[in-house]
Each structure stands twice: as C-alpha cells, then as structure tokens.
Design a protein around this nucleic acid. Structure first.
Lengths: 202, 202
DNA sequence: TGTACATCAGTGAACGCGCGTTCACTGATGTAC
DNA sequence: TGTACATCAGTGAACGCGCGTTCACTGATGTAC
C-alpha cells in the first residue's frame, strides 16, 4: 500500500483533523485502481481506506468525478516530469520511451484512468487538459525531432503513439516489458550520429 | 442504436421468446459502451434496452463478467477479420493500420473494453485469449514482415504497438483520425519496392 | 398427423448490498484585539 | 498572553437508488411414438 501522506510536522496528530486528506484520498484511489479496476473505486471505499468518514471527502472534492479527474491530472503531471528528466539522456527518445513504459508499469491503474473513457469525456476539466498537454509538450520539445516546428509536432505525435502503444500492450499483458524495450531499442536506435535525421522511419 | 438481431425467420414472432437474445444483449452492451462508459453497463440496464426481464440474461450468460468477456471476444474476432481483409491490399501494413484505426473509431466502447482492465485480468477466459491471439496472428502472418519466424514476430509486435498507439490516442481525443492516418502513411510508406526490407525503421 | 411430455426460454418478485450525496452537527484551529 | 469568535475539517445518520443474482413459476417449443 502507498504510504499515506501525513502533515509535515511529522508527529502524529491526536486531533481528528487529518492534515493532508486530499492527497491521502488520491493515494487511496491509486491503490484501488492499481489493485483492481475502476469499478471498485468509490467515495465510500476510498474514505474507508483512509480511515475517515465518507462525507469528509466532500470538503475537498466536489464529488467522485472531481476526485478521479484530480488523480488523472496528477498522473499526467508525474508522467510529464518523468519524461522531462529522461529527455536529458544522451539518447533522449529511447530514454523517454523507457520512462513512459516504466510509468505505465509502475502505475497501471492511473495509466488506465488517464487514457480511459472517464477522462476522455471530461473535456471541460481544464486542469486535466492542461496536465495532459504537458506530456505532449515534453515530447514536442525534445531536440531530436528537428528544427521545424510543424515537423517537430508531427514527429512528436508519431513518437507518442509508438511509445504509448507499447505501454498499453504491456499493461494489458500482450507484451512483456523486456520485449517492448528491446523493440524500442531497435526502433529508436540512433542510426545517424548527427542526430538531425528522423529516427522513427520517416 | 444498433439494429437488434432477430430470428432468421424474418417475421416478428408473437411469442415472448426472443429468438436471438444473446446477440441482442451483446449489441446492447456495445451500445451502452459506445455511448458512455463501462460503469453504465449492467445486466439490468442491458436487459431493459432489449426489452426483456433482467433474469432472462442468465439463461445465456453466467453473469456480468461472462457477458462482457463475450462482447470483448467478439470484438477481437471482428477486428481480426477486418485486418485479415486489409492484408490483401497491395500496401498491406498501411491498410491494416487504417483498418485498425477505423475499427477503434467505429467501436470506441468495445475497443476500450478489449484493452481495458476488465479483460486484462480475465486471463482464465480461454475464448477471449484465443480471440485476442487471432489479432496478433493476422499481423504476424502479413508478408511484409520478412521470412524469418522470429523476426516476423518481433516486427509484428512493433507494428501492433505503433498502430495500437495511434488508435488509442485517437479514441481518447489526443489525436485526429486524419492526422494519425497521415502519420501512418509516412511511417509505413513502402520506401523499398522489393518489400523485403523493414518498413518501420528497423 | 396427433398427442404426451420433457425441455427450453422467458417472467417478476425478492434478497441483500453498497453506492453517491446531503444534512445538521461538533470539535479543532487560527486570528483580531 | 488571553480570550472571543469565525472558520475549517471532520462525524455519523439518513436519503433514495440501482445493482447482480436467485428463485419458483409458466408459457412455448420440439420430439418420440
């Protein structure tokens, strides 16, 4: 189980005030999501896990949708951060691909939520949209994709698709991590030392 | 709404026997799935749509899980058939990729079910597993992937990932069909007229 | 062709359950003076 | 430093609801003779 976030004071409060309930609830959602499927996630269940009454959650989230959207947005931000860190690698595309796969494997539940129908239809949730766009931005800004803006965007989308496809097939158990990484090594191999040429076959 | 399958006699029976309830129920599942998300799908809801009592469904399916697995397996078979047809195209990889994307766009709900956590954890459901393997088989048998068996398998997996990634990002609204197809055209362009060389950059 | 009867495919009421959300409440916390 | 008080962050009971599944049932269908 994910460690419950507690107040920064460190000392366990005797007060019944939790201190960091929103994060604790998000973590509980992730635990349930990673353990099984999305149908098990609920306000009551999640509150139960945290050890708080169900209605307490409504002090921090408008409702179930809001809580889920918040978890998904966090997921996108985490993913973007991981990719950003990987982009500093000497072989950035490969590193980004690996980081993406690693994220999906480590967080299958959130990964599914992020790219599932719940979130897909939440087009109005601006925080979520922005967080997802952040992932694309990291990809689009990675230097290997050339100088022209439009070309970079196109290639970033293609690369995202490749990487995302591997990750999805892994999560769904049609492909092993090892095999996927070996394949990515082939695909993203820097066949051209100048680094200016396309790396995914076009 | 999907047209409800009726008995082959054509004439509307006055009997209360439905005649093809299993298929009608599967179609109802798909309708609900395509319209919204998986949480709306249920035995009662689906029976209601078909116009039958909830318990009638239990004459044909063991329960909810069984019904969903059946829908997913059908989805895999449909997808495999569509890909098989596309494989006859002079540019088979591109045709297969387009067919895959078209299937996902036409059936976003089933597509999500097929690659979602519900099915991913149903490893014991052999019919489902077999149906999913059929999709891979079509890809692996497509001639462009070379003569060596292992190489073919590797490349088939890579191609699947690419194609699947595009489809997922489309379904989740991060990418348009037009853009995805243009990118696939670039990636799968037959740069080598002999057709024997790798087509996805490795 | 008719009839008896087994089986098939429905019905509808009932079960227990857990859900999301609301409400009036209360104890804890922080702040102005 | 103390105190009064507003606000914050919980509680727990209650609401209505729809779900999956079971059960005893009944009408329709098909088959053996």
């Amino acid at each position: 189980l994910r460690i419950q976030a507690r107040p920064a004071t460190g000392a366990a409060k005797k007060s019944y005030h939790h201190g960091n309930l929103p994060e604790a609830l998000r973590n509980a959602v992730r635990d349930v999501l990673d353990a099984g499927d999305i149908e098990q996630v609920g306000m009551r269940e999640v509150a139960r896990i945290v050890g708080v009454s169900a209605s307490a959650a409504y002090r921090h989230f408008e409702g179930k949708d809001d809580l889920l959207a918040s978890v998904a947005a966090d997921g996108f931000r985490e993913l973007a951060a991981a990719l950003k860190a990987a982009a500093d690698d000497p072989a950035p595309m490969m590193a980004i691909g690996f980081a993406y796969v690693d994220f999906a494997v480590a967080n299958p539940g959130v990964f599914g939520l992020m790219f599932g129908p719940h979130v897909a239809r939440k087009e109005n949730h601006s925080d979520l949209k922005e967080a997802a766009a952040g992932v694309f931005r990291v990809l689009a800004r990675t230097g290997v994709f050339g100088k022209d803006r439009e070309t970079r965007r196109r290639r970033a989308l293609a690369a995202w698709s490749v990487i995302h496809g591997f990750s999805t097939l892994i999560v769904v158990n049609f492909l092993s991590v090892a095999k996927a990484k070996a394949l990515m090594r082939d695909i993203f191999a820097e066949t051209n030392p100048t680094g200016s040429d396309p790396v995914i076959g076009f």
